[in-house]
Design a protein around this nucleic acid. Sequence first.
DNA 1: CCGCGGGCCTGCGCGC
DNA 2: TGCGCGCAGGCCCGCG
Length: 277
Amino acid sequence: MPELPEVETVRRGLIPKLEGRIIQKVEVYRYDLRVPVPADLPSRVEGRRIERILRRAKYLLFEVEGPETILIHLGMSGHIFLDTGSGDFRRQKHDHVIFHISGGCRAVFNDVRRFGSVDLLPRGAPETDERLRSLGPEPMGNAFSPAVLLEAINRRSGPVKPALLDQRLVAGLGNIYVSEALFRAGVSPRRKGRNISQRQADRLVDAIRSVLGEAIEAGGSSLRDFTGTDGELGYFQHRFQVYDREGLACSNKNCGGRVKRIVQAGRSTYFCGRCQN
DNA sequence: CCGCGGGCCTGCGCGC
DNA sequence: TGCGCGCAGGCCCGCG
């Protein structure tokens, strides 16, 4: 599931347990993730301190002491489990990389479908690594604005929904939050990018920020209850207004319409045909 | 440059 | 209960 809010929630959950600690040992059980795990990952990071944990779009960056940064992507089914080290630890199916941290805690990268990745970057990599370099602005940051969005979206001839999934346009949205943001903004997913108006760009930026912000808050509250027993970070209950609600009533008062599902560029899109134009 | 379709994997839920 | 199918929240590549 992980889109920007889930990844941010994972980051916030990891910080108190990992930042400032030493990576004592790394065990790799599968190297064949979507991007191969560097064969010498353990020797390159063992014994080094995790100085900062950052996020860029849906990527997590562990800045470790020395010249390299660990770059983690959760793909579609990736998780990071935190094991506090109190009980007896058993490796689960699909646990691919285990970081043993000073103080007895473990951070476990688990990914059923192996669309995720655990990789290394030269530190200061945003300028050098193509994966990060090609990303558009952070939606919650100052570089993202109605003017920036409008300029980029108006160059698109295709429908706005698949365009918003393009990480070069704005970084961190996935299939769920794009549907949710378009609903909040009252913009049809089928509208052509070139036909988006100034006013719609204003509404879209507001909608993107509010839907992501609320989801990050919901993730934050899930962290406050985090006991460390199951150790699963970043997955939390969240109510969606259209996503996966095909056939259910539109949640706008007085609308009376129903949520529709269509497929665009091979992905499901959910929307209300009455409220979104 | 843009838009789309396919592929990468495994697991789950559905209809039969 | 078992089987086959479609589907899944990401991303990259190649084609037109």
